[in-house]
């Protein structure tokens, strides 16, 4: 008989896979930060975190969220825990409202993600205490780019999740 459990990956492997994607996203973010001239960054890790919290809220844990946050803090030069705090809060709210989020169209999801990114960037602008007109321009541009990136990240991570979970 065709059993679903035969093809399912163990929760242990999946847990590590989620962590791996977060770490890869944070490394990408750090590398990208070295190449783009903006003071702010494209929050790839945050978007990956939102995806995993919405797609598999049970599998995403504190450990990987905090590790990804600490990696960003170390390599982007922030006080340890700066990213972690916002990642924990994002995870919490994403898991609280993931049912509603899943039901939205992709465009609506992009708008929500753009809003989260906007708050995330403002948080860092406030921390850095470095206001300027160009920073507001960067904020707008990166928020817009992030909303464009969301369907791509969603598609890639969904494809990987289905591949890993069902092997299809």
């Amino acid at each position: 008989m065709n059993s679903l459990d035969d093809k399912k990956t163990s929760i242990f492997n999946f847990y590590f896979f989620v962590g791996l994607t977060l770490i890869v996203a944070s490394i990408f973010e750090v590398i990208l930060n070295n190449y783009i001239l903006f003071k702010l960054t494209l929050p790839l890790t945050l978007m990956s975190l939102i995806y995993w919290n919405v797609a598999t809220p049970r599998s995403i844990g504190f450990f990987w969220t905090m590790l990804a946050g600490f990696i960003l803090d170390i390599f982007l030069g922030y006080l340890l825990g700066t990213h972690v705090v916002i990642f924990l809060l994002t995870s919490y709210f994403s898991q609280r409202y993931f049912h509603r989020f899943r039901a939205l169209f992709r465009l609506q999801q992009s708008l929500i993600v753009a809003m989260i990114v906007l708050i995330y960037q403002i948080y860092f602008i406030l921390i850095s205490n470095n206001f300027s007109n160009s920073l507001i321009f960067e904020l707008m541009i990166l928020t817009f780019i992030s909303s464009l990136f969301w369907p791509i990240i969603y598609g890639i991570l969904r494809y990987l999740r289905i591949k890993l979970t069902y092997g299809q």
């Binding site: 809220p57 049970r58 599998s59 844990g61 905090m66 972690v84 809060l89 919490y92």
Partner: peptide, 15 residues
């Protein structure tokens, strides 16, 4: 979700 308020507060405290 795995992230409940009861877990979030200690995590935030640690951070």
């Amino acid at each position: 979700g795995s992230m409940r308020a009861s877990r979030l507060y200690p995590a935030l405290l640690i951070t």
